[in-house]
């Protein structure tokens, strides 16, 4: 399947896309409010619980987290060494854990590194939750509701529709070039770039021809005939959506209140 959407009947699936978007925003903002890893860890756990209740296959999550691991480790190390100790309020956090070539690795820096990693983790997991539970039509409706020009939604929807077509085109072009002796993606660095030019040029030229035909087909199907278009399945806020949105607003207000009391700093 093209888009990472898993159809299912879970509670999160039934929520309106706006509720989910707000929830996503709230989690993300909270993760930026606090410097201490404890609260971010809480949010990660919270997000994980939601992730498991929607019944997504765990392989999908692993696939996303795995390539990020080296970056996470690098972030931890470099933040530990480089974050200036004077930035920490508490004495404990200014403590040096160990030094490498006389560069101190501070406890606070290490903790802040963890916070950064958790921050990215929160955004990754919550993004995943939204994309796994929301069909693309709902996302396009959301764009419309927040008054983004309707052309954007159309371009995105049509773009998605054309990915398999262009994928096939690209494969056919590679085959056609191979059949006349091209060796694509092999040989040295420079040679392989050259071989991809022989693929990209026919791909672009063919796309330009296709886009003319597509424009004509749009007109043939009445694109732009009316000021408005009919949406077959319009998104709707229900009672539970309002309830959860209210909860989300309370949550973020609470987070800012905590922060104003200097909780969750380093």
């Amino acid at each position: 399947m093209l888009i990472e959407y898993y159809p299912s009947e879970s509670y999160v699936h039934k929520l309106d896309v706006r509720t989910k978007a707000l929830g996503f925003l709230v989690f993300t903002i909270i993760s930026f409010v606090f410097l201490s890893p404890v609260i971010n860890l809480l949010i990660v756990l919270c997000a994980c619980v939601i992730l498991f209740t929607i019944g997504t296959p765990s392989t999908g999550i692993k696939k996303i987290i795995k390539p990020l691991l080296p970056i996470f480790i690098l972030m931890l190390l470099i933040t530990g060494f480089t974050y200036p100790a004077s930035n920490f309020i508490s004495e404990e956090n200014q403590r040096t854990l160990f030094s490498l070539w006389s560069i101190p690795f501070t406890l606070g820096g290490f903790l802040y590194g963890i916070t950064l990693v958790l921050r990215i983790l929160i955004m990754v997991i919550t993004s995943t939750i939204v994309t796994y539970t929301t069909p693309i039509e709902d996302i396009l409706q959301l764009l419309k509701k927040i008054k983004i020009p309707h052309q954007f939604a159309f371009i995105i929807a049509t773009g998605i529709r054309f990915i398999p077509t262009m994928q096939k085109k690209s494969e056919m072009i590679q085959e056609a070039q191979k059949a006349r002796g091209a060796e694509i993606g092999t040989g040295g660095f420079i040679k392989s770039i050259g071989s991809y030019i022989t693929v990209l040029i026919p791909l672009i030229v063919d796309s330009l021809r296709m886009s003319d035909n597509l424009a004509i087909a749009m007109l043939n199907r009445g694109f732009g005939a009316m000021k408005t278009t009919t949406d077959l399945n319009e998104i709707k806020m229900r009672g539970r959506d309002y309830l959860i949105c209210f909860g989300e607003v309370i949550l973020i207000a609470f987070a800012f209140w905590l922060r104003s009391k200097n909780i969750g700093v380093l």
Partner: peptide, 27 residues
Amino acid sequence: LVLQDPETQIFGITVEQDVAFGPSNLA
């Protein structure tokens, strides 16, 4: 008007969406 290449005349990701494209443009 139905043109030569069907590939560039399909807009929907699913069959139903595609057929609905024209009538929904006409509101």
